[in-house]
Write a protein that binds this DNA or RNA. Structure first.
Length: 596
RNA sequence: GGUUCCAUAGCUCAACUGGAUAGAGCAACUGCCUUCUAAGCAGUAGGUUCCAGGUUCGAGUCCUGGUGGAAUCACCA
């Protein structure tokens, strides 16, 4: 909470005590921003307190307003509209607040809380390249990690790679049958793309077999189970699990190609992890915990020896946790991995960034961990995000409607180049600088586009219309930063320093007041965004701040001003906005350029 | 069929967790570059917040019932 809000709330508490002999708790109420059609910046809604004030809404507002104007050094005026008390803050208070914020080295950053948070995201399969859906996941996970760190938590980013299983064997089998020894080197195809092709190839050939079997009179269900390719894939999985040398060697070779491809994609995205888990190491985990659950009476056995969790009381039905033959299912290893992650990093909270199609799975998992008596279970959180839809509907890899992550990023860079060149903004830049700028802008546009929407909500991506560079976009905010940078360069060359004497800044342009007001909200936004795991709140804030600055910039001259103290004040204000934009954008994983 | 989630301007999204006359961007229209970057600024137009009830000083937000859409309910992951 910022200084003005804090002080105001304390004084309102005092007002209630003095006027109505009522102990209002500062944490029990919030001041709201005043709507712009009214005078003032902070609004107290008095309706909830009419019982305590024993007066009508207007009289209550008047009484509190009058008290604050009399007794608070920072309240300069008030007005009451119906039950809304609108407060104006003295200009000197705003100027002092800016000075305090400008002096902070990392405005917005919270002191360490001692809380440890693990964030798991990305979690790709090693049988196909990353697509648009993965981008939303990766950007979300990365941004949420940064927001939680800014909130003062100790954060660990982890990636759990799905590198084994029947779907991996499908691409391996297709490669073995049809690959003719192709490699990324021999074909010039990126490793993950090459493997993805064989995954598709498997599906095509498998479908042909099913058609043939159906034509021979089998039911479709039987055909799917009995198709030779499927049987071979299953046999291959068995061989892999038995440690068959040739199979494991092929698996290692092909996964290696995929990782080389992923490394390039991650580097382009600007995303990294503190630790990478592999399912090939964790898929056997959890079986011992099943026994523990049986001993504790959390699970029960059925006649066929399969083990189940009874979650009927929570309307989650019964859930299989171990097959009758003793082999794992998906949730078995998740139970084991849960403990493993907690052993590695004794987290207070563990966030899973996973699509909302797995809502049910995580409800079940968290409930089971709780029943097993894990004290960290209440800290488990599923950051459930919505799908990215295309205008044609859902992305389907088999119908070729997926938007490839690498291709999309490259298109963004190309668009950025085109736009920048059309505007003639690369004069005086070296090729390297220009190239760096295109990547900054293209990636910024993409990340901002995907992060500005509430994570929980399904969203639409229209590749035809591409992503805009005007309006509520990443480049708009980046542009504002570049603009301010130009001002700061000029201030520097004129040798004007930013240390202003607050007592000499005696009048404040309304635009400057708006800006300082907006700046003071930043820490609160970080707190809200961390609490909601929502980069969208930070994105919205960055946009509003940039927009507010542009309004200021248009109306208020900075250098063309006689009063030297006011010039210094405006430069300091500009610099503080630039720093805050840079900070907010960095929480989204977006860089801001010095010029564009 | 059961469960969960969603529905706001032509389109894409907001609305500070129940507050004032529901806001931005895009698209359309009108102004503003001889002054710090026009990827900008200012303005016009655009709404029965899916429908019907209810709760209260106050509902886009909460409760009930509909309508429409999505996900899930696998001994897949």
């Amino acid at each position: 909470m910022n200084l003005i809000d804090k002080q105001l709330k304390e004084e309102i508490v005092k007002a209630f005590k003095t006027l109505f002999d009522f102990e209002l708790n500062a944490s029990d109420f919030e001041l709201q921003p005043t709507r712009k059609e009214f005078e003032g910046t902070h609004t107290l809604v008095v309706f909830p307190y009419l019982r305590q004030t024993k007066k009508g809404p207007e009289q209550s507002g008047e009484a509190i307003g009058e008290y604050l104007k009399e007794h608070s050094p920072i309240v300069s005026a008030y007005n009451v509209v119906k039950g809304f008390l609108n407060l104006s803050i003295a200009e000197s208070a705003w100027v002092n607040v800016l000075q305090a914020i400008a002096a902070e080295t990392s405005f917005g950053q919270y002191a360490p809380t001692g809380e440890k948070v693990m964030v798991e995201f990305s979690s790709p399969n090693t049988n196909k390249p990353l697509h648009l859906g993965h981008l939303r996941n990766n950007f979300l996970g990365d941004s949420v990690s940064k927001i939680l760190a800014a909130r003062g938590h100790e954060v660990r980013k982890v990636n759990l790679v799905n590198d084994r299983g029947i779907h991996i064997c499908k691409s391996m089998l297709a490669y073995e049958k049809f690959g003719e020894g192709e490699t990324p080197e021999s074909t010039g195809i990126k490793g993950d793309k090459l493997i993805g092709n064989y995954y598709v190839k498997f599906d095509q050939e498998y479908k042909k077999e099913i058609e043939q079997l159906v034509a021979d009179g089998k039911s479709e269900e039987d055909a799917k189970k009995q198709a030779p390719l499927m049987l071979e894939a299953q046999a291959m999985l068995k061989k892999w699990e038995d440690g068959d040398e040739a199979t494991v060697a092929l698996w290692k070779k092909m996964n290696g190609w995929v990782y080389e491809g992923f490394d390039i994609s991650y580097a382009t995205m600007g995303i990294s992890f503190d630790k990478v888990y592999h399912e090939s190491d964790t898929y056997l985990l959890g079986k011992d915990i099943i026994q523990e659950g049986l001993d504790k009476g959390v699970f029960f056995k059925k006649d066929d020896n399969s083990v189940w969790a009874d979650l009927m009381s929570e309307k989650l039905d019964e859930k299989l946790v171990l097959r009758g033959d003793g082999t794992s299912v998906y949730i078995t290893q998740d139970i084991g991995t849960c403990d493993l992650k907690h052993n590695d990093f004794s987290f207070n909270k563990s966030v899973y960034v996973v699509g909302n199609e797995q809502d049910y799975h995580f409800k079940v998992l968290f409930s089971i961990m709780d029943k097993l008596g894990r004290d960290y279970a209440k800290g488990l959180y599923h950051l459930s995000y919505g799908m990215v839809d295309l205008p044609s509907g859902k992305m389907k890899s088999r119908e070729g409607t997926v938007v490839d992550a690498d291709d999309l990023m490259q298109e963004m860079f190309d668009t950025a180049r085109k736009q920048t060149e059309e505007l003639g903004k690369i004069e005086g830049m070296t090729d390297e600088q220009a190239d760096e700028l295109f990547r900054t802008l293209g990636l910024g546009a993409l990340k901002y586009f995907l992060l500005k929407v509430d994570p929980k909500k399904r969203m639409l991506f229209n590749p035809q219309e591409s992503i805009e560079f005007q309006g509520n976009t990443g480049p708009f905010i980046q542009y504002t930063h570049a603009r301010i940078s130009a001002i700061l360069r000029r201030a520097n060359s004129l040798e004007i320093d930013q240390n202003f004497d607050a007592s000499k800044v005696t009048s404040l342009h309304p635009r400057a007041l708006d800006l300082i007001h907006k700046l003071t909200e930043y820490p609160k936004i970080i707190d809200l965004a961390a609490g909601d795991y929502s980069p969208a709140l930070v994105a919205g804030y960055a946009y509003e701040l940039a927009k507010t600055y542009n309004g200021f910039y248009q109306e208020v001259p900075i250098f063309n001003e006689d009063d030297k103290d006011v010039v210094k004040f405006r430069i300091s204000l500009s610099a503080t906005v630039a720093n805050t934009i840079k900070s907010a954008m960095s929480l989204l994983g977006i860089h801001v350029p010095e010029r564009m």
